[in-house]
Amino acid sequence: MGPALLSIPQSAIRNPQWEILICGFGGQGVLFAGELLGRAGMRAGMEAAQSASYGAEARGSACHAGVVLSSEQIPYPKVRRPDLLMAMSQAGYDKFVPSVESGGTVIYDADLVKPKQIEGIGQVSVGATAAATELGRRGIANVVMVSAAVALTGIIPREALRQALEEQSPSAYLDVNLNALEAGWKMRES
């Protein structure tokens, strides 16, 4: 599937604002991914707000991060109806898919999510976990996912994403994270 299939959601035209939700479980770096996306938006000159579900800090429990990107001030900073859902777990997919804005997009990890047939939204499979495993570190699937989503939708220029990743990544993980960005970006062509 190529980018041509990804139409800009109606809500984004009416209101120059993107609502993005990333869901998964603790330990996958969902919050890191949310922060990265928000930071990249900010570096691209947009207004950005990122919120997250906070529970007991346990690995394996469901979690999600919301990102709002806009060319204008963001009055309400939480995600209500995502224009873009990035699903890294089946449970998260099942829970949040009904809230996706009509005309919106779902990008899911091919290894972790079995999609349902849903009218009115586009769904794209991304081999994030597979790509991360290939790079030798499953833990960077989150970066692959964000990179692929950014590439496929074109919300943020690549340079801004890279700058955000350089800022946010612990120095020991920077190289591997940059590889993940590269791998994710390539998925635009696949």
Binding site: G34, E35, G38, M42, E47, A48, A49, Q50, S51, A52, Y54, P77, K78
Partner: peptide, 10 residues
Amino acid sequence: DESVGHLREK
């Protein structure tokens, strides 16, 4: 409040 304390913005 928690909503602002745990909100990430510019």
